[in-house]
Amino acid sequence: MRSAVMDEKKAAILQEIPRLRRYARALLRDRDSADDLVQDSLERALVRMDNWRTGESPRRWLFTIMHHLFIDQMRKVSRRGEASILPLDASEALATPATQAESVASREIVDALQQISPDRRAALVMVAIEGFSYAEAATMLGVPAGTLMSRIARGREELRGLLDDQARRRAIRIVEK
């Protein structure tokens, strides 16, 4: 009954899509790019179905696949100096119509999140947004626990610094008005 097993596995994967989309959105911000990343991860997962042990939630397996695709691409991009193909630019993101009214505060924090390094961003998002434990996140990111810990600590510090800078700039703009 290979196909019955297959159907069960596919159903389990389908259930994870909302979580995968959220992770991708936090990593990439732009909705279409994020969904492209999800789609590629799903396609890769399907051809590697045998790597997923039945009886286990596919969540960590899928997150691992997605993370590899993400980091791979970030590496290619930085190697070729084409960060412009990524929607990292705040002004570009502002031009994208938001599905919900994005408050100034949440826009600022999304901007800040996109500015921290991909490795730190991934670690922080996995733990702070996705709620994985350090041990789970370290496994999925393929780094030792100590590395994960310092990425989280540095990521949070970096985020705080960026938010403080934005707040200062906003204060200056208000004064200038």
Binding site: L42, A128, I129
Partner: peptide, 20 residues
Amino acid sequence: LRNLFVGVLEEPVPSRLEAA
């Protein structure tokens, strides 16, 4: 941070992802 993306979980899944 957590509040930023809560809405994503409620969004309908794009059909291309289900199709994939």
